[in-house]
């Protein structure tokens, strides 16, 4: 998976911190661009896609600890 325009290193942070960081920074990329969250909290595997569903963004999948999100709005 190619990394997005923005990479957020949230390793060592516990949920919900990586999700808060993602929400704070999603506006830093243009609509259509991707943000990659690096997170080693196991909850991120559920919570990144759930956040995308709730906030109307596209979850592109995970590559190990790297979760890719496309900004849709």
């Amino acid at each position: 998976m190619s990394e997005g325009a923005l990479v957020l290193d949230c390793r060592g942070q516990r949920c919900p911190l990586p999700i808060i960081e993602l929400a704070k920074r999603i506006g830093d990329v243009e609509v259509g661009q991707t943000v990659t969250v690096l997170a080693d909290d196991p909850a991120a595997a559920s919570d990144v896609p759930a956040w995308c569903r709730m906030r109307g963004h596209e979850y592109l999948g995970a590559d190990g600890d790297a979760y890719a999100v496309r900004r849709l709005r």
Partner: peptide
């Protein structure tokens, strides 16, 4: 069912299997 409330520090496997938000 949030992970920080469990002894294993893993989120609820039920919420995870459903694709639900596990924190809060």
């Amino acid at each position: 069912g949030s992970s920080c409330t469990s002894s294993t520090l893993r989120p609820s496997h039920v919420l995870a299997a459903m694709g639900a938000l596990t924190h809060g």
